[in-house]
């Protein structure tokens, strides 16, 4: 959740308190390389592929996956970012603000788009992202890579590439950074 939204959502001014560490920096690194290899395997190469990170949590992971793909294949891999705030289905129910840049390289007609996010939870963010992608063309296919799948889906959406499946309670919070994945709660 972006900083500004967090400030404006209950519990107001809450901070994340970690309980356990579930992935180390090394685990994240290995998961990124594995997912990069899976992307290449699944698509028989990298032709027409573009990697799009979801603002804001998915972007650092998207950048790492893009770099890994480039290193494995020895060629530039086009990449971009997308902010889905304006496509959310909970606008008006809670504070929603566009925060960061949307930058899509070229149009997406006939491209294979790999969406990258940090945590897959209800699936509503991904639904909004699928909606937002439409404005940039009609991709040949859209695939989803996430560092953590924590369950509790509310929509028929599934990931194609997963760093780690972590069973969670609904009220828990999963904190993903490039230095590790922590499980904990928001506390005031």
């Amino acid at each position: 959740m972006a900083e500004r939204e967090r400030r404006m959502s209950p519990p107001y001014g809450g901070v994340f308190v970690a309980r356990t560490t579930v992935m180390s920096a090394g685990d994240i690194d290995r998961a990124i390389w594995r997912m990069a290899h899976e992307i290449i395997e699944h698509n028989h190469g990298l032709e027409n592929l573009v990697v799009v990170g979801l603002q804001t949590g998915g972007v650092p992971i998207s950048e790492r996956i893009t770099a890994a793909l480039a290193e494995i294949s020895g060629a530039e891999v086009p990449s971009g970012t997308i902010d889905v705030a304006l496509h959310r289905d909970d606008i008006g129910l809670r504070p929603v603000m566009p925060e960061e840049a949307t930058e899509i390289p070229g149009d997406l007609n006939q491209r294979i788009v790999v969406l990258v996010d940090d945590v897959l939870f209800t699936g509503r963010t991904i639904r909004a992202a699928l909606d937002a992608l439409h404005d940039f063309g009609r991709p040949k296919s859209v695939q989803l890579a996430v560092m953590v799948d924590r369950g509790h889906r509310e929509l028929p959406i599934r990931p194609d590439y997963v760093g780690k499946n972590i069973p969670t309670r609904r009220d828990e919070v999963v904190n993903v950074t490039l230095t590790g994945v922590e499980l904990g709660e928001m506390k005031k």
Partner: peptide, 8 residues
């Protein structure tokens, strides 16, 4: 409902 899993 928290909508996203992460706490950045």
């Amino acid at each position: 409902q928290p909508d996203d899993g992460d706490a950045r």
